[in-house]
Simulated assay, not measured.
Amino acid sequence: MKYAKNILETIGNTPLVKINKLTAELPCLVLAKYETFNPGNSVKDRMAVQMVEDAEAEGKLKPGGTIIEGTSGNTGMGLALVAVVKGYKMICVISDKQSKEKVDILRAMGSEVYVCPTDVAPEDPQSYYSTARRLSEEIPNSWYVNQYDNPSNTKAHFLTTGPEIWEQTNGKVTHFVVGVGTGGTISGVGTFLKSKNPNIKIWGVDTYG
């Protein structure tokens, strides 16, 4: 029988789908990597698993521990999935600009959610960055994920997303265009693709503001 032992084993191996109407006037094939096919509905599932498994291997995350992270929602969802499967507690610290639906789904997944103000600097004690770090210092047997500075974020995409794109395109990929948040996806995929073909162009896209 073919089956996944748990929901985490369904992460990755997402399809490439041709974009038709939006790119009708372009003289090239444009494909979208559909990361919403991951169980947590985003690319963040990949690095959530990698970061937790690496923390376990390094002894930073111990049985019965608490995972703590400041998140805009997607990484929190990925981590919440991992926490449920592996038996950890999960605390998500998010900003107040996130939707009620994101807060509700994180709580439905068993996470404790702290909502912090958006209009403060990252180093402000009230920011979701500072709050997550403070909670990790106050709560025994806890681990602060720190996705922005965690090398396992990039590692996840070097080991999975990059190789998938290379294999799915039979090595014919010429450009990789990706939104930049933490920098993990572009760094991991970009490093892998360029190791295969240094002529591949890596384009990062970020929104104004």
Rank of each mutant, 00 (worst) to 15 (best):
A132G: 09
R107D: 02
K62D: 03
V205D: 03
I186C: 06
M51Q: 02
E9I: 03
H157S: 08
T160C: 12
G65F: 01
E25K: 15
D45S: 06
T182C: 00
V17A: 14
K201A: 13
P15W: 15
S95P: 11
N150P: 08
K155I: 00
Q50M: 14
D206A: 07
L31D: 03
T14N: 12
S136I: 07
V173I: 15
L16G: 09
L159V: 11
V205Y: 14
I165W: 10
Q50D: 04
V43P: 04
I165R: 07
T174R: 14
V30I: 12
V120D: 04
Y208K: 15
Q98S: 11
E164A: 12
E138W: 12
M90V: 08
K33P: 04
D96I: 11
W203Q: 11
M109H: 04
Q126M: 11
E123T: 15
K2D: 12
Y144E: 07
P63D: 04
G190Q: 03
F176T: 05
P117Q: 15
T71Y: 05
G184S: 02
V103Y: 00
L31I: 10
P151R: 02
L26G: 06
H157G: 08
L135C: 04
E35F: 04
Y88D: 12
T191F: 01
G188C: 10
N153H: 00
R134Y: 04
G188I: 00
K18C: 01
S127V: 06
V173P: 00
G65T: 10
T14A: 11
T23E: 03
D96N: 12
V30F: 04
F37N: 02
A48V: 07
K155C: 00
V82N: 07
Y144S: 01
Y88C: 05
L26Q: 13
V177F: 05
I186Y: 00
I94S: 11
V49S: 11
C28H: 13
D45C: 10
C116W: 04
T23H: 03
T71S: 13
